[in-house]
Design a protein around this nucleic acid. Structure first.
Lengths: 352, 352
DNA sequence: ACGGCGCGTCGAAGCGCTTCGACGACCGTC
DNA sequence: GACGGTCGTCGAAGCGCTTCGACGCGCCGT
């Protein structure tokens, strides 16, 4: 057992200690730190020297109290099933990193605390603003966000974005892009292997929007779209896929928007006698890293988690400065062609 | 464009408003909230009613300043390559949930801010304590943690744990358990397919400890252990595995401690002519969820991320209360037998 | 020579809360 | 019936910082 010997309180130096040591007023030290008033070069240097020498760090609580700014933002993360864990993680990291660049810290809030959690951190002035991930089309938190005294930015797109600020990948165009790529290669029977059913049921925006994009593009290109949800886990994928090919033997183009399903899909297709890309072309909506590790390397539309995170934080910072920002920011999807798509071969096309 | 109309400052009610409304002193309200002094039933109820009516939420900054407790802990998360993302996530969620039960919030700090980040949040009194994940055997943050004024708990086990508080799965015993299970089934040639080489190079504790446990148990059981790192990505796994089977055709037991490698391994083995479990038995160190989704379902030792997270927070809370805690808490591994292990068949055993 | 204007600095008033000592009221005790 | 103890409440003193108004000084224009 260790006795957690908190040392005998050497007690952090306060701004008063710094002021005394530098021979100036407390307010002068404060202004040196904030730059909100002009301070002569010589005084500034003296103060900075004292700060360094004493190892002074401003007390966050006191600062927050006096300035009414905590310099902390809340990040509300989902912890539900069917989430694309690595994307969420990547996203969270981008948020933290960007927030730090704006001299802010990030408080982690789980969505299972629900709206109450949001209200708590906002009302207690623990945070200056809120970033909400995994927004559903009809999200119960949205009304709350609208009436919150603190600014917020949503990742994802609720049904009604009025009065909000939202950032997301343009999944609709992403879905279209996938289908267009396949259609242009000459595929005529295309399927979307989507997110787990629960995700659609929950009304999660990105899943619905992708599907809509897929259907729309397919219709334009006079292609028959089949869309169906897909659970996680290799076994589930295999089942879904076998079933799909059974019902549509002429299927030659596959759009996969379920990160977890990508590897199983690539493993299962050959087992079902379909080579990629000779017999079936596969486009995935998944992180680049993933697409490049797969074999064959996947043609894909990456979810730019990092960019979304950075954008979201930047927008929030602007709102904190009382600047005006657009209600909806949709990031343009970029489709990267790799080795998993090709024109359909005669054989595949003519499969009964 | 939305003009982010911050409404005309309805200004949160303060404790003084509550006191006035309830007809008591400010301090009385405070005591009702903290329970640190006896308050009569009738007064308490009057105060609580006012609080609810006014929608009062104590100001976190003011509270932190006056009480010298922020009620926030820092969680330092890795964002490096080779990490087991879902485990980290699961862990983070457990930490947040548990912290909330202790009425604390969680500040997310990335390890790429390095020791400086730690020092910053600790010195500014932004947080009361620190949770550090992904601790390496010889971690540069360890000395800093030792001299920090605030308590900390490490997830993982550095080379020298003196004066620290550490929680982790007992990976050494986990490695042993895997090998013992295989050895007891009768396997005589066993391999560990480990983490990416970079993880070992970095001196990450769990990888080294698992390997040590595997080797130790193998020696005891008079089994020849082969251990080798394994990169992520299906292609890399296939290569490593093919190579392994080439060099040791008599291999019949496989321990996999690389979450990302599990699915590829299961996909590759049949392709190389080895059925699971008839020809090769596979034990994985991975989340249960993962093991159950695989096919065949995997015999596994789960990393109890949730339990570790909960433990870590509890320990930190005890340290915050100045209670004494053990330096090292190792959680006992539990091996769950599923469908991926079996006694070796004659054929497999006699393979050239 | 004088008023006016910046610039650099200071002092003091909070920010909203916790906590400590004080103080009546009321109880039981010898 | 005076005394010590609890119990419940109050008032005030901070916690460490930001910010506002004030002030002295040197410099400009006239």
């Amino acid at each position: 057992m260790t006795v957690p010997r908190r040392r005998p309180a050497p007690d952090q130096p306060t701004i008063a200690d710094v002021a005394r040591h530098a021979g100036v007023a407390v307010s002068t030290v404060s202004y040196v730190l904030s730059g909100k008033r002009a301070i002569s070069e010589v005084t500034r240097n003296r103060v900075l020297a004292s700060i360094r020498l004493l190892g002074y760090h401003p007390n966050a609580g006191a600062r927050a109290l006096a300035s009414r700014r905590a310099n902390v933002i809340a990040l509300v993360l989902p912890l539900r099933a069917g989430m694309q864990v690595p994307v969420v993680m990547q996203f969270a990291m981008a948020v933290v990193t960007t927030a730090r660049r704006f001299d802010h810290d990030v408080l982690l809030v789980t969505s299972d605390e629900g709206p109450a959690g949001l209200r708590r951190v906002a009302a207690s002035a623990l945070v200056d603003g809120v970033l909400v991930m995994d927004v559903e089309l009809d999200d119960p938190r949205v009304p709350l966000l609208r009436e919150l005294t603190r600014p917020s930015v949503l990742i994802g797109l609720p049904a009604d974005a009025t009065g909000l600020t939202c950032v997301d990948l343009d999944f609709h165009r992403a879905g279209r892009a996938c289908v267009e790529h396949l259609a242009e290669l000459g595929h005529r029977r295309i399927a979307l292997l989507g997110a787990p059913a629960a995700v659609y049921d929950r009304g999660t925006g990105f899943a619905h929007r992708t599907r809509a994009g897929v259907v729309e593009a397919a219709t334009w290109h006079n292609v028959e779209p089949v869309t169906l949800p897909c659970e996680e886990g290799a076994a589930a994928v295999r089942r879904t896929l076998a079933d799909l090919l059974d019902r549509h033997p002429d299927l030659s183009g596959l759009v996969v928007q379920n990160e977890a399903a990508v590897d199983p899909v690539l493993a299962t297709l050959p087992a079902l006698g379909r080579r990629v890309p000779q017999d079936v072309s596969v486009v995935a909506v998944c992180p680049d890293q993933f697409a490049e590790q797969a074999s064959p390397m996947l043609t894909s539309v990456p979810v730019p988690a990092e960019e979304i995170g950075t954008q979201a934080v930047s927008l929030l910072m602007r709102k904190l400065r009382d600047e005006s920002v657009p209600e909806v920011t949709l990031l343009e999807p970029r489709l990267t062609v790799r080795d998993s798509t090709a024109a359909p071969t005669r054989a595949a096309g003519s499969r009964r």
